[in-house]
Design a binder for these strands. Structure first.
Lengths: 201, 201
DNA sequence: CCCTGTTGTTACCAAACCGTGACTTTTGTT
DNA sequence: AACAAAAGTCACGGTTTGGTAACAACAGGG
């Protein structure tokens, strides 16, 4: 691992193909988000964004731009390592993707190709928008997704009321039998967005 | 495997006869859908379409033009591999085709060679167009097929009123004893098309 | 030419779907 | 404890679309 400035960092990512990238948004040149954008154009390497304490803005911006997780300064070694491990574990998505295009977890399996979802062995009937939402979640498992990103990616760029998204999330949770109090599948992160977690076996 | 631009790609497909084609619709030089259309004029090679946009539109367009599956950028290696495996599996049509040309499921067996269908052990008499529809469904089990594709593939290229297709689906459902409310065999996917699923034993 | 079975068409309906805005609950902060 | 902001909930209604019925067109065989 190594540190570098903007353009150097980009070349490094391209040539070294690292397993994970730690990107400090608090650097002087402050083009950190541009770097992230560039990286995302050719790589989906997990990116862990570092922000200063209380800097809500860049945290959210980072996630919106495609970061996988964030960590606030000051942080301890152990915390950094923990975050890295988490990000790495998610990005490898072990045998999550079966031989077919089916993603399985405890009590939940999602067939991306056939558009079918099974909850505890029983098929759940999702509406189009519910399905779009779920499939986006599944393809970005474990990542916190801000509402604006969902609006863009799932509803196709249009401006969507946040309450519409909230409703869709609700209806999806119900069909997935996700306890709406303390949900385990579709989790909300106050001020940031939603994340989807595949239940471990 | 190799990458190429529009026309080069076409020649490659013709000369190399690959097992699978990955087609990026976001290429600059030429409309990817045209490439796909061209390929389909002389080859049935499985095509996996890559699209940058998360919106439903370009995906559906891809499928309508004859793609076998799609994948949205950015995607992980594991996802790409999974999709490729799935596409390849489907194209080989596993052991669903029994030793004879007979496909069996719970309470339903379809003899593709002899053009006969049995529902709960009793033979069902299908009209020609019903049969064409069913056999196409069976050969594309589990895939969602947009109405335009059905028009093209089943009715032979002509422009067919969607209501005609709907009627044929209806009559087919009736003969297969598929509950027209919440059908299990021929399923409708609002805004997308129909899919056929063989009932599991 | 008529009869019969098949297929396409039109018009209509019922239901699914989804967005919205008002309202309530939760959460975190002072 | 009080407050404000965020997340969640509810009920309503407009729009879409797939399903349905009845009928017309058509083809082939007797």
């Amino acid at each position: 691992m190594s540190t570098a400035q903007g353009s150097q960092g980009l070349q490094l990512v391209e040539s070294e193909a690292p397993d994970v990238v730690i990107l400090d948004l608090g650097l002087p040149d402050m083009d950190g988000l541009d770097v992230l954008r560039e990286v995302r154009r050719f790589s989906d390497v997990p990116v862990l964004v570092v922000t200063a304490k209380g800097d809500e803005v860049s945290r959210v911006k980072g996630l919106e731009t495609g970061a996988d997780d964030y960590i606030v300064k000051p942080f301890s070694h152990t915390e950094l390592l923990a975050r890295m491990r988490a990000v790495l574990r998610r990005s490898h998505l072990p045998q999550l993707w079966g031989d077919e295009g089916v993603v399985r977890g405890k009590g939940l399996s999602v067939d991306l190709a056939a558009r079918r979802v099974f909850v505890d062995g029983q098929e759940a009937e999702l509406t189009p928008s519910e399905w779009n939402l779920l499939s986006y979640f599944v393809r970005n498992e474990g990542r916190i997704i801000p509402l604006p990103v969902l609006a863009e990616k799932v509803w196709g760029s249009a401006y969507v009321e946040s309450s519409s998204i909230k409703m869709c999330v609700r209806r999806l949770r119900l069909k997935l039998r996700d306890n709406t109090k303390s949900p385990q599948l579709v989790r909300s992160h106050r001020g940031l967005g939603y994340s989807f977690v595949m239940p471990r076996w």
